[in-house]
């Protein structure tokens, strides 16, 4: 079934038009890769989906599980199951990682009308996820992302995703700045979370991540529009020929 339907999306940042008529359909269970050169609008798409302030949608629509996503506040989107793994996770000194995650999970549960977890229940959940994600619990006791290495920050994003169990996960250049071991670890985390109910939108500049997380669809984003769509072989083609030859085949926009 259709989870996300983006139609003719136009968005501005600081008065400059970045997205210029982007359309994309994502079904539950699918993994979509969005690739493209710098400045194409990849991160803007992620930020518009998550509801960051300063990203102004001037035309088009985004329907998520039949609901107008653009009408929701960021926290309501999160509660509805949208998760953005940040390209640059924010350091928050003074807020303990565990405390933060529990506050986030319970805030989401509260908005969904579910019972909040007490600290014992939460701890049990966290331990399960740590085991599955193969992450040391040392990260939990520190302040959110504070003093974390680049790799630790990205792993922490994936760990948050594992605990919050979103329906639609958007990974904004989660692979950037990672060495090969960290990349494998992040990819393994994502693969663990793949399920028929969950969809992924992986925004990436390089094909490297796609060696480890095999996408169902690959889209090329250039100058604010999806100019080409295909299967994983498209990523390999890009790797060989770069972005210069793109846009020659018909953009399919609504994949699947």
């Amino acid at each position: 079934m259709t989870m996300l339907k983006i139609e003719n999306l136009h968005a501005r940042v600081e008065g400059k038009e970045i997205l210029k008529g982007l359309s994309l359909t994502v079904n539950a269970g699918e993994v979509h890769a969005i690739m493209g050169p710098n400045g194409a609008g990849k991160s803007t798409l992620g930020n518009v989906l998550a509801g960051r302030e300063g990203y102004e949608v001037t035309a088009g629509s985004i329907s998520y599980n039949g609901v107008d996503l653009l009408a929701l506040a960021p926290e309501a989107r999160a509660a509805a199951g949208v998760f953005l793994a940040f390209q640059y996770p924010v350091e928050i000194p003074g807020v303990n990682n565990t405390y933060f995650l529990r506050a986030a999970l319970n805030a989401q549960r509260k908005q969904r009308g579910e019972k909040e977890l007490d600290s014992m229940q939460f701890l049990k959940l966290v331990r399960e996820k740590l085991k599955v994600m193969q992450i040391s619990d040392e990260l939990l006791h520190r302040a959110v992302n504070t003093g974390f290495s680049g790799g630790e920050k990205k792993r922490n994003e994936i760990f948050q995703m594992a605990v919050l169990e979103p329906q639609l996960a958007i990974l904004d250049e989660t692979d950037s700045g990672l060495d090969i071991d960290a990349l494998k670890q992040v990819a393994q985390g994502v693969n663990t979370l793949r399920s028929p109910e969950r969809a992924f939108l992986m925004i990436t500049h390089y094909q490297r991540l796609l060696d480890y997380v095999v996408p169902d669809f690959v889209h090329v984003l250039a100058d604010g529009c999806i100019v080409e769509s295909g299967d994983k072989s498209l990523a390999l083609k890009l790797e060989d020929h770069g972005y210069s030859g793109i846009g020659t085949s018909q953009p399919s926009g609504a994949a699947a």
């Binding site: 960021p74 926290e75 998760f83 924010v90 928050i92 986030a104 805030a107 989401q108 908005q111």
Partner: peptide, 11 residues
Amino acid sequence: SLFYLQSRGIP
């Protein structure tokens, strides 16, 4: 920071 927390579901 504010957006980061909100994006995780915190009002």
